[in-house]
Simulated assay, not measured.
Amino acid sequence: MRRLLLISNSTLHGSGYLDHCKDTIKYFLTDKVKTVLFVPYALQDRDNYASTARKAYTEMGYGLDSIHEKPSAIEAVRKAEAIFIGGGNTFRLLKTLYDEKVVVEIRKRVLEDGIPYIGSSAGTNVSTVSINTTNDMPIVYPPSFEALALVPFNINPHYLDPNPDSKHMGETREQRIKQYHEYADTPPVLGLREGCILHVEGDKATLRGKTDARLFVRGKEPVEFTPGADMSFLLSATE
């Protein structure tokens, strides 16, 4: 039974790292989990990143081990009670997951063994079918854009609505997602605004957090969903 907490962003304006979602994380993990395995691959300075994450999880009452501090990434995943993958550059993150040969291991632990998975920003991107709807620049090239596929759709974290007062003439986030859907067999894309969270328990998905989400399905108009909405239909999503 898969258990996922997919967070749009780690830091919400006016608060510290994970402050906006600490209560949700504690509710999700419960007291059954003692230590979380952190994956800091999305940033270059892994030591500092792990220190930041460790402080936040310690305040929540959990221990935190960073995968980069372990002699074997594969063994670390195999022994993990829960996994947290943080934000940063999605291309660097996915490439390193492939380099360390943990893509299949993480998928197995989450989908077959049922350990909790928490993703934030890039960590949410890689939980989906592919990273094709990330906002990040391709600073490195992973062997594939196919990701962990813990859910059968894509997510666009940090989703931004068009600003009618802006003089910027580039594509809006909505236009870019619709460009992605110009290709056949592309899955739905859930746009998670800052402060928005998708909580998955088995075959049930619920929108949580402080903001609404916007769903894009190929060939259809976008639809808005508010916190508390049942998003379970996405777990059997097809084009």
Rank of each mutant, 00 (worst) to 15 (best):
D47H: 07
S66M: 08
H68C: 00
V151P: 07
T11P: 00
L64P: 05
R107F: 00
G63S: 06
Y62D: 07
R2N: 09
A147D: 10
L18W: 12
E239L: 03
R92T: 14
A147S: 13
S120T: 13
N125S: 12
P138E: 15
L234D: 09
L198Y: 05
E112I: 03
T211D: 09
I177L: 11
F28N: 06
L5A: 02
N154S: 09
Y62T: 09
N156E: 08
E100H: 13
E201F: 01
A53S: 09
V129Q: 06
K210W: 03
S51K: 14
R107G: 05
G219T: 06
F84T: 02
P143F: 07
Y141L: 09
N89R: 11
S66A: 14
T90Q: 07
E59P: 00
M1Q: 10
L192I: 06
G191A: 07
G114K: 10
I115Y: 04
M169Q: 12
E224F: 15
D47L: 06
Y180E: 07
I85S: 05
N163G: 03
T211S: 15
I155H: 02
V217F: 02
N135C: 09
L150E: 05
D19I: 09
K22F: 05
A53F: 04
L190M: 13
E100D: 13
R2D: 04
I83K: 03
D31S: 15
E171D: 14
T206P: 00
P71S: 12
R109N: 12
D212Y: 13
V102Y: 03
G88K: 00
F145H: 14
A237S: 14
P188D: 00
R109H: 07
S120Y: 04
D165Y: 15
P138H: 15
D136W: 12
P142M: 06
P162Y: 07
T30M: 14
I74L: 12
S8T: 10
Y17V: 04
G14F: 01
P222T: 08
V33W: 06
V200Y: 04
V223L: 06
T11L: 03
V104W: 14
M137Y: 10
S144L: 05
H68F: 05
S72P: 07
S10D: 08
I74V: 13
H68T: 05
Q179I: 10
V140F: 07
P71R: 13
V103R: 07
H13G: 02
S10G: 13
S166P: 08
T58M: 08
V36N: 07
K22Y: 05
D230A: 12
L29C: 12
N163L: 13
M169G: 02
Y117I: 00
E69A: 08
G88W: 01
E69T: 06
Y141W: 11
A56N: 05
R208S: 08
I67W: 03
G88A: 02
